[in-house]
Design a binder for these strands. Sequence first.
DNA 1: CGCGCACTTGACAGAGGTCAATCTCCGTGG
DNA 2: CCACGGAGATTGACCTCTGTCAAGTGCGCG
Lengths: 240, 240
Amino acid sequence: VIPFRARTQSRCTDCRVDGGCLRANFPPQSLSLLHDLEFTRRRVMQGHALFMEGDPVRFLYAVRQGSFKSVLMLPDGRDQVARFPMPGDLLGLDGMGRGAYASTVIALEDSEVCALPIQGVHRQLNHAAWREAMCRLMGQEIVRVSRHMLLLGSAGTDARVAMFLLELSDAMRARGYSPTEFHMRMTRAEIGSYVGLTLETVSRTLSSFQQRGWICVHKRHITILALAALRTASEPGHHG
Amino acid sequence: VIPFRARTQSRCTDCRVDGGCLRANFPPQSLSLLHDLEFTRRRVMQGHALFMEGDPVRFLYAVRQGSFKSVLMLPDGRDQVARFPMPGDLLGLDGMGRGAYASTVIALEDSEVCALPIQGVHRQLNHAAWREAMCRLMGQEIVRVSRHMLLLGSAGTDARVAMFLLELSDAMRARGYSPTEFHMRMTRAEIGSYVGLTLETVSRTLSSFQQRGWICVHKRHITILALAALRTASEPGHHG
DNA sequence: CGCGCACTTGACAGAGGTCAATCTCCGTGG
DNA sequence: CCACGGAGATTGACCTCTGTCAAGTGCGCG
């Protein structure tokens, strides 16, 4: 559905990505600002890193196609998935303060991003509309991470997996795909890392949901049969 | 140690708070900008809310004296402590995007804050130095929350409590107090909510640390005897 | 064709949540 | 001044949940 496009400098107004990528995040009157912000495309092959924790921030990236995992790493080697960026998501905000990325982003499939030069981003901050948009984006990021923190801190196993499925469902709906039937690009281990469980527990919980008739799982193909039930399950916080 | 000061409009350059509050967050050349940002003081009595989730954002607050807990609430009534703001910390950033606070902030003791009118904050964003500072602050917030998320997702009990003590220790040191002997203003339940454990487990873990000779606990008075041991304990992630 | 990776499923043990009793402070009121 | 009551904290007993280890299946890719 996305016509081939030379990997040269591009403009957001030409972008055909469903949902409008950044455009959804910026008010109409600031759209013209995107004209001035010239950027390049970049392909990232499955399993390859878009950037790594500690790298100097030279670009913000907007996911154009494909999907990623954003992981945080500890000195001792363990890591945790913090997010599964999808088309339209902006990456690299966590590095805007320190000048170095605070997370490592890895492609879950062959993907494509728009690379916005950081100087350009900073230059556009002279415009109030752009400032407002960036403020909104960073605020949203804080809220998003906080909400996930809450999930990890006070939710039971079922709630965690249910929440994950609902987040995915919402993400698919927002991008114009079916919210009840989709393909997951991440492994059970990555899901487990994201919601704070082991891959075995994730697998068992998915099976449990299936036995209850809430979903249908075939490998990574998910069909949600009872969205309401999942929503209910995602609320209580049994702890433990 | 802090001289009495009328609760009228004030200037940051007059501020005598140790560590310099906002001043620590802004580069010297932008200090003059703080002159223009007139603000008022506000007292918050123990147990009272500085602001509540959903309230329209009219101020950013800088903690001047005392301590708070920042809690996130779920529709079902459960809540979780997301942070323990202390003097010098900035509150309300999570609401800058949506225009409504995303958390509820409650005083753990009689406290005092500086209330920065949000219009003034936005006005000052015209200055590049101020922008940079705000970017840094929001970026730090994202990183801070992400790091805590990682703790909640992949750390064992000992690591969680050890990490909490170390955070507190660092906060005390940064404010010029002893990093090894201090008074905690929060209950065991609030600690537990913060690190994702029950109050009983927090209590048991503290006792355990004491038996190992790492700390000395008397009610809320903490003496850290083996900082290095705590640092070691905060690393491994036994999960569980 | 078969090796390997992702996933599923089972058995088991340990970590930590739950329930409950007790203790220590404090503040309050008789 | 002391008795009482309540909130916070500690400790113990119990039991569930889920992480760990291990075996087995299905699928894809070389």
